[in-house]
Amino acid sequence: MLSFEGFTLIIMLFILAPIMGAIALLFLFIFEKRIDLLENKNKEIRLEQALQEAQYNKLNQQIQPHFLFNTLNVILGLARLNRKAELIRALEAFSQFLKFKYKASEPLIPLAQEIQYTQHYLDIQSLRFGDRLKIDMYCPDHLTIALVPPFILQTLVENSFKHGLEKKVGEALLHIRFRLDSETVHLEVKDNGLIGNAATAAEEGGHGLDNIQKRLYLYFSNRAQLTIASNENGTKVEVSWPLVFDTNWEEAAPE
């Protein structure tokens, strides 16, 4: 037999259930459109991100044939000069470079990887320039696991050669410096190449620098910067972007 307490509970349920039902329905009516709107907004943002990613990847792809073309010219130059031993070493370095290049499909790669990649390019250039080329590269150990959009350093170095050092008679100096300053990574590429003014450098190196700028903007928006300055002593390009770490790389990095 149902007790009075049980009966009271059941009557309470009978009375409260319709009120709760009405509130639920009212809530649905008021918020359904807003929830739909938020969902659509979220979808829109995701689509926009996907579009940006596609644009970014497209830019990444663009930079590669640009470099390949120039490197092949370097190798061609060695062949024309009949410098067979250097040509072999250049092809070795180039093969290493390509091996890396086709692996790099990530939107951001660790700095160590980017440096190694650029090193292959520098190896090729060292063969061409011989003792004339002096490279001074410095990157603090703790920055090697910081993430960077691929081909940034390589493009800047390539531009230094293309627009400055190629025309330089005598010693060719290239300084590459990485530093960390208030959670921002700064990269400075300085050469003593012969270039008249910064505007010309920016115009001539337009394609590469423009690409870097676009990619940095897509990934870091206004928090990344690129400046270029030229005088009779050479050209200095400075790039800065927010410090980003990949946790997987962080764990894998040596102490």
């Binding site: 349920l13 009978f14 319709p18 639920a24």
Partner: peptide
Amino acid sequence: GLIWLIFPLSFSS
């Protein structure tokens, strides 16, 4: 279904 539940309950009361 959940909202419908309340109608027979309420009519019973």
